[in-house]
């Protein structure tokens, strides 16, 4: 398939492999017998460190399921997943929670923030939960990067949708996770706010060396990524480096056509 053939843009941290997350023969099926639905059908994927990867595919292609499995939010039926060199499919629930807390960051489409906490508290939430002291310098840098300085005491309700998503990005980055997962992070935003959030993600990859995986159905969003993985019917059906909005769109049409033809 397409795994392990990619050029690396940044050297991996010492003692770590080149991949931030890896799926091997991952199957996710619901139900059994005649009603068995396969959401992921023996997927092999490697997410490289320091890269911005987009996962695309039509509705029901399994792209969200793949992300949830990679992020340790969902369990797999069979196969193995490594996140930051930890095999997570066999981890007990408690360890999985800790892994999400300490090594993974999330940006969801909506409802990313706790309304009772202010911006700063939301950003440091994962570390607060862990009982760790956040690295003040780093937090300041992240906050600065996403342009939230001056709004730290605001409650989420006082922010616009775009600002809220930026807070979510800041939170995802704050704990210096090995990997950040975005589940259609710009899905609810207008194009300007969306562009802002995406460029922050891009910046964090370029200047902070952050690894990001993002599920999207928006070719423009995907064009911010280094690489686009295409899923259809629970399988990886395409892999594109250096995408532009146009060729992503072109590729999507192709798959759609093929999907309809088959």
């Amino acid at each position: 398939m397409y795994a392990d053939t990619l050029p690396s843009t940044a050297p991996p941290p010492r003692g770590k492999s080149l991949t931030a997350a890896r799926a091997q023969h991952v199957v996710k099926a619901y139900g059994s017998g005649a009603t068995r639905v396969v959401a992921l059908d023996a997927v092999d994927v490697a997410i490289e460190r320091g890269q911005f990867t987009a996962i695309m595919g039509p509705s029901g292609s399994g792209k969200s399921t793949l992300m949830h499995c990679l992020a340790g939010l969902d369990t797999v039926t069979s196969g193995q997943i490594w996140v930051d060199d930890v095999e997570i499919t066999s981890l007990p629930e408690r360890r999985l929670t800790e892994l999400r807390r300490d090594r993974v960051g999330f940006v969801f489409q909506a409802f990313n923030l706790l309304p009772t906490l202010n911006v700063m508290e939301n950003i440091t939430l994962p570390m607060d939960i862990a009982g760790r002291k956040p690295d003040a310098g780093w937090i300041a840098e992240v906050v600065e990067t996403v342009g939230l300085t001056g709004r730290l005491k605001h409650r989420p309700g006082q922010l616009s949708g775009g600002q809220q998503q930026r807070v979510a990005v800041a939170r995802a980055l704050a704990a210096r996770p090995a990997i950040v997962f975005g589940d259609e992070p710009t899905g609810n935003l207008d194009s300007r706010a969306g562009a802002e959030v995406l460029s922050f993600l891009r910046t964090s990859v370029d200047t902070l060396g952050q690894t990001i995986v993002m599920v999207t159905h928006d070719p423009v969003a995907a064009s911010y990524a280094d690489r686009v993985l295409y899923l259809a019917d629970g399988r990886v059906v395409g892999d594109m480096y250096g995408p532009t909005a146009d060729n992503v769109l072109e590729r999507m049409k192709q798959f759609d056509g093929r999907g309809r033809a088959s």
């Binding site: 939010l73 999330f106 409802f111 706790l114 862990a130």
Partner: peptide, 16 residues
Amino acid sequence: SREVGLLRAVGMSRVQ
């Protein structure tokens, strides 16, 4: 329930 889900996703344990 969404808040609880979010908390769990960002790493709050069941015990917490």
